[in-house]
Write a protein that binds this DNA or RNA. Structure first.
Length: 487
RNA sequence: GCCGCUAUGGUGUAAGUGGUUAACACGCUGCCCUCUCAAGGCAGAGAGUACGGGUUCGAGCCCCGUUAGCGGUACCA
């Protein structure tokens, strides 16, 4: 039987990091088994669903590169099917109409609260006679539809592919509602009906669905549908062990944030996969193909993983491992692809020039290649990289303090500029020879000039090998900056 | 409250069916490179596996209890 899985986010907000990982695992499992990956938008909560959110989820999925084979399907389009399923469950005696108002229910809950007794709907309307129902209808009451959970003892059992055998006593399951009084299925039903209709074989979702699964199993069975396999994923928590949400974590909870901060999708996905899963060997840098080949539910952890959104310090402003992983991909990826990815970040910062894509394309690629060794995110090219792409850059106080300390530099740097200006070739080797000769003639250490030049040319105290840097900057800019720096 | 899931260094994970001094990665610290470093190389610190019992010749792996965290407990998804 063909494996069919789905990612079913609700469009009440942006694509969330936890959602991204759920989508990834579904995708991996589908691809691993030559199965079908379905995208379904669960928009039955009309009060909270928005078109904008749907769009951003789609955008997020595209950025992640998790292509789907079917969909996107919209759950609201299946209203008729949900309604028919609900009515059929009433007709078959698996469910019943309950006429309590929301207020009455709230009152019952409140009372249970004060009496400190667990609230469970009492099933008062389980066996209403047609006359009683008619009376409620005459009163103008509407009704929800509730599942008639067996009260004969026993339990629901299912095997979770990640968490193992699960069993829940009927007595611990209340007669849950699954259809609204104003019409419209609730999650438990719509989700199950759609999964059945779309012939989903494996439901892979967050662990927050685990506790509700017994109810859905009951629903599948009552509807006479095949119960799919379930695989629940541990949750992703923040450094304080709080579930990550837009409300408390802001943008950092969304996939879009990582795109804008300059993370590469491959690195991001790789990092997310490692939050709750491991390959089985000691590899950690894994391409999508590697992950697909190594993926299995057995290797998914049962423990909630922590994604350090706050980071540890200024340098590690977000989970250090994510930063590290991104830098690894930055260094290893094909240069032409990196060049293409850097462009929008320079454009965003107003540092892009069309020449970089035309007559200066070679220079641009060379510069990006030179810089990537010590950068970690794409935005670094627009921040730390600014001196390479613009003449307007800041001098870092620490760099000035450290590399311009020697007062002799005030004269030496311009003199060095004069000396280098006479060079016919301006390459790594020629500049090195020229600078060292100059240093010797002046009786100063080359290092003094090298470090002073670094700060003169970039305003920074760290960076690529200085002679590479000279070569990339070119004679004109190098000379100008050497003269200007301390004047 | 009730029901359930989980518990290995700061973080992410390893340690097939219990068997030597608990491994790897990130981060951290130090050293080297001496043209710097946020790059690279090397080294080191850091858990005795939440706690308490038990089973066993032997337990991170099994059982029980406690504690803690998380999830569920909606006419949200």
């Amino acid at each position: 039987m063909t494996v069919r899985v789905r990612f079913a986010p609700s469009p009440t907000g942006y694509l969330h990091v936890g959602g991204a990982r759920t989508a990834l695992f579904n995708w991996l499992f589908a691809r691993r088994n030559n199965g079908v990956f379905i995208l379904r938008i669960e928009d039955t909560d009309t009060a909270r669903s928005t078109e904008e959110a749907t769009q951003s989820i789609l955008d997020g999925m595209r950025w992640l590169g998790l292509n789907w084979d079917e969909g996107p399907f919209y759950q609201t389009h299946n209203h008729a099917l949900h309604k028919a399923a609900a009515e059929a469950l009433v007709a078959s005696g698996h469910a019943y109409r309950a006429y309590e108002t929301k207020e009455e229910l709230d009152a019952m809950r409140a009372e249970a609260e004060v009496r400190k007794v667990p609230f469970k709907y009492n099933g008062a309307h389980r066996e209403l006679t047609p006359e009683q129902q008619a009376a409620f209808e005459a009163e103008g009451r509407s009704h929800v539809i509730r599942f008639k959970v067996p009260r004969t003892g026993g339990s629901v059992k299912f095997t979770d592919l990640v968490y193992g055998e699960q069993e829940k006593a009927f007595d611990d399951i209340e007669d849950f509602s699954f259809y609204r009084s104003e019409g419209g299925a609730l999650y438990l039903l719509s989700n199950a009906v759609d999964d059945a209709e779309q012939r989903v074989t494996h439901v892979i979702r967050g662990q927050d669905g685990l506790a509700n699964t017994p109810k859905q199993v009951l629903l599948y069975q009552a509807m006479g549908k095949t119960v799919p396999q379930f695989a629940h994923l541990p949750l992703i928590l923040d450094e304080n062990r709080v579930k990550i949400s837009k409300r408390i974590h802001g943008d950092a909870a969304t996939v879009k944030f990582y795109k804008e901060k300059g993370f590469l999708t491959e690195a991001y996905l790789n990092f997310l996969a490692l939050l709750g899963w491991s390959s089985g060997d000691e590899r950690e840098i894994l391409s999508l193909d590697d992950m697909r080949d190594a993926f299995s539910f057995e290797r998914i952890s049962h423990t909630n993983a922590i994604f350090n959104l706050k980071g540890t310090d200024e340098r590690n402003w977000i989970d250090p491992k994510l930063l590290w992983m991104n830098s690894e991909y930055l260094k290893a990826m094909p240069l032409d692809r990196l060049v293409a990815q850097v462009r929008p970040f320079l454009e965003e910062a107003g540092l892009w020039q069309d020449a970089y894509a035309n007559e200066e394309a070679e220079w641009f690629a060379r510069t990006v290649d030179l810089l990537r060794a010590r950068y970690r995110v794409l935005t670094d090219f627009a921040t730390y990289g600014k001196p390479y792409f613009s003449d307007e850059f800041e001098f870092e106080a620490e760099a000035v303090k450290k590399n311009f300390k020697d007062p002799a530099l005030r004269d030496l740097l311009p003199q060095l500029a004069d000396h280098l200006e006479t060079l016919e070739e301006f390459t790594h080797d020629s500049v090195e020879a020229g600078l060292r000769a100059f240093a010797e003639a002046k009786g100063v250490k080359a290092g003094l000039l090298i470090n002073g030049s670094r700060t003169a040319l970039t305003g920074q105290s760290v960076g690529p090998s200085m002679f590479e840097l000279f070569a990339v900057m070119g004679k004109a800019r190098s000379v100008t900056r050497l003269r200007k720096a301390l004047s």
